[in-house]
């Protein structure tokens, strides 16, 4: 009885989260007439796979995909390169001003992106970096969250490992690369996944920092496409599916890491 109630609750909740996304897939395969008809079309009579091709002729959707991949990919690589290194320094080194620098770093967690938006726009405009990859990428190359995550993960690694490597004459960079980095793999997986998915989905900065259609990322390109062709819902839905599929696949393959990552950030 109690179990039946729980199953009902969870099933209902899951339907509420998943059915709209399935409808999005259905919509992407409908004809324009079906999207506009008076009765609700839950599944198209004949799936219109051609909608996906048509999308690419109406907007530079190929560019959007490449831009999203380059921007999210470059930012993820930068995080994987720098966050563990900086986290390692704060976890294992003593040096002057260490606490001051660490507090200054953590304080940036309280600064939401919209605060930086206007000055960054002015900076990029002055540098001539609007509508460029470097303009889209540089504001997000590192953040306190990733560094903090790596520091928490590196702290429990025994100091003796580092001392032993030093006595063996290993250089500091080598100690980092061969002693510390290999042990952080699970945390790096979490960091990489989170960074990629969030940057892939990022909306506000690519909206502000691009004006030419060819430089837009998928979320921005798709939204502005919808403003221009607001009756072509089947094409907007096709674009949404393209935007959604990579994160969905990544998530289903690695959902344990995601759940652990969220729990990890919640329990600090």
């Amino acid at each position: 009885m109690r179990k039946a109630l729980l199953y009902t609750l969870l099933t209902l909740a899951s339907l509420v989260t998943v059915v709209p996304l399935l409808y999005m897939v259905s919509l992407s395969l409908q004809t324009e007439t079906e999207t506009l008809s008076a009765e609700a079309v839950l599944w198209p009579q004949t799936p219109q796979w051609g909608n996906y091709a048509e999308l690419f002729t109406r907007a530079p959707f190929g560019d959007f995909i490449v831009n999203s991949l380059v921007v999210a990919g470059a930012i993820t690589l930068a995080h994987l390169l720098f966050d563990p290194l900086v986290g390692y320094v704060f976890a294992k080194f003593r040096f002057p001003l260490r606490n001051t620098l660490f507090v200054a770093l953590l304080a940036t967690l309280m600064v939401p992106f919209f605060v930086r938006m206007i000055p960054l726009y002015v900076l990029m405009a002055n540098l001539g970096w609007l509508n460029t990859y470097q303009g889209l990428v540089t504001p997000f190359l590192m953040d306190a969250f990733g560094i903090f995550l790596m520091r928490q993960f590196i702290q429990p690694i025994p100091d003796d490992l580092i001392h032993a490597a030093r006595i063996d004459g290993a250089s500091e960079l080598r100690i980092y690369r061969s002693v510390i980095l290999p042990q952080t793999r699970p945390a790096l997986a979490v960091l990489g996944l989170f960074t990629f998915v969030f940057q892939w989905n990022e909306f506000l900065w690519p909206l502000v920092a691009t004006t030419t259609p060819e430089m837009r990322t998928i979320p921005v390109g798709l939204t502005l496409f919808n403003q221009e062709y607001f009756t072509l819902w089947h094409l907007t839905a096709a674009g949404s599916v393209i935007l959604f599929v990579p994160t969905a696949v990544l998530f289903v393959l690695t959902q344990r890491y995601f759940v652990r990552g969220i729990a990890l950030t919640g329990l600090k």
């Binding site: 949404s240 959604f244 969905a248």
Partner: peptide
């Protein structure tokens, strides 16, 4: 857990337009 978490991974662009 997977089904309930899926919308969290979608872009606000998808959520908004849908």
């Amino acid at each position: 857990r997977v089904l309930l978490l899926v919308p969290y991974l979608t872009s606000v662009a998808i959520v908004g337009l849908l």
